[in-house]
Write a protein that binds this DNA or RNA. Structure first.
Length: 155
DNA sequence: GCCAACGTTGGC
DNA sequence: GCCAACGTTGGC
């Protein structure tokens, strides 16, 4: 199994929203970047674990908790819906979504988030994509070592 | 709210 | 296939 990190703006969809969702599960809509899509489409497997990262969240910016992949990639129907904020005209015109979702279920929320500044100052996490300047990738791989360090920091 | 960094689009 | 223009991301 593999480890991942996915970003979300908590104003739009937070870890608490995930906890409140039916079966604590949601389809991860709205990824509109090819590299991020390809990770989900080609590499996400049921049972993989995911850090849920809150971006644009002030002092709370950072990793809020852990989710689990419960369903592998399938077409993102939001891309086909003109009323959705994630509507994609090209997908609609082609009659098939070029974007995918995976389903994730909340595993546990951290007591306090592992903040971005914490990640930046923790040895062993320097190479994480999330701390690289200008790195905007919303779905990124995490190494088992990085995963372990962050879980430890959360406890 | 600013703006640097980056990805995508589309004219040529 | 290049690349300028544009839109978005996301920290600050």
């Amino acid at each position: 199994m593999r480890y991942w990190l996915m970003k979300t703006e908590p104003d739009v969809f937070s870890f608490d929203d995930l906890l409140r969702a039916p079966k604590k599960t949601t389809s991860w809509e709205g990824v509109r970047n090819y590299q991020a899509r390809n990770f989900m489409r080609d590499d996400f497997k049921v049972g993989d674990l995911v850090f849920i990262y809150h971006s644009n969240a002030g002092d709370e910016t950072g990793i809020a908790g852990i989710a689990e992949v419960v369903k592998g990639a399938y077409g993102d129907q939001a891309a086909m819906n003109p009323k959705s904020p994630y509507f994609d005209e090209k997908s609609a015109k082609a009659g098939a979504s070029r974007w995918v979702v995976v389903d994730v279920r909340a595993v546990r929320k951290f007591k306090t988030p592992v903040t971005l500044s914490q990640i930046k100052s923790t040895p062993g996490l320097e190479r994480m994509a999330v701390v690289q300047k200008g790195q905007r990738l919303s779905v990124q791989p995490v190494t088992p070592q990085e995963w372990g360090i962050i879980e430890k920091a959360a406890d």
